[in-house]
Amino acid sequence: MVSTEEYGTARRGASERPADPAAADAIVVEDVGRTFAVRRGRAAGEVTALSGVSLRVARGEVHGLLGPNGAGKTTLCRILTTTLEPTTGSARVLGLDVTRQSRAVRRSIGLVFGGDRGLYGRLSARENLWFWCAMYGLRRSALRARTELLLDRVGLLDRADARVDTFSRGMKQRLHLARGLVGDPRVLILDEPTMGMDPVAALDFRALVAELRAEGRTVLLTTHDMAEAAAVCDRVSLIDRGRLLMTEDTDAVGRLLSGYERVVAHGVSAGLARRVGALTGVVAVRHEADRLEAETERPSATARVLGVLAAAGVHQVSTARPDLAEVYLHLVGRRGMGVT
């Protein structure tokens, strides 16, 4: 990857402090909270988007921020990219405070959105990148060279002069990533980067993230897709309702997810439901009418549940993995909300 410094044209104001090369962690979030004022009719209120969030992301780490819609992922991204100030706490990127040294932070980061938004659809990919390069102080030959380099890197060189609104979702996403890289950032914030992407494009995207990791860049990636996080992240943090539930190695969360299973059966009596609930490894049972839903925390428990149901003559049975929200519930029940 050719760095901006090699082109030698990115301008820095004399008063701007550069990123701290000695900062051990690329991203440090300490007890960050964010509330928003809301007005319903005449009543004024407050909504908490983030509460007491603390997080450290090491240099060169690909970190996943997992959570359902409205969990607070984007709010945290906005704080780290300086477009939103925290109400409480502090956050630093490469040792720079996002509130007090916001301009210097903006030089060190790249922001990548998911979906269709964030690009000028009536312009070509090349024209888009020219503009974004100029936003990072690149000029003339450096600007053009960097644009061509990035277009080539994300595989859009042959469509460089086509209008962006004619692009597929995957192509737009590649352009988003190119835009995020125009400033040659050491830290990249990817907010739902694979939203709406088809599986092939998502796989391509994962390969690009792997390249970024190989270049030593730090990546904070928000997603609600566990499989995506497992494929590209070193560690993941689970966030829900503005609180960080846990931060773990991706493997640990993967094991956690693969351990949990849900068994759904029809034609189950109340007595049989109680017997299932009493089995070892069954962590939750819901029984309505003749429908049973049993959550298990390991595969052997699932086998036991299936055995009991089969022995009782219940044949309408299915199993499924729980979604992320259900895993959250397990985590909250097992470790408490304060675990980080």
Binding site: T83, R103, I109, F113, L119, Y120
Partner: peptide, 18 residues
């Protein structure tokens, strides 16, 4: 509307010049 405002503000370029 097109989601570029946030991206522009997150760059070091001066928005008033733009």
């Amino acid at each position: 509307n097109q989601g570029t405002l946030e991206a522009v503000i997150a760059t070091p370029g001066r928005f008033s010049v733009v």
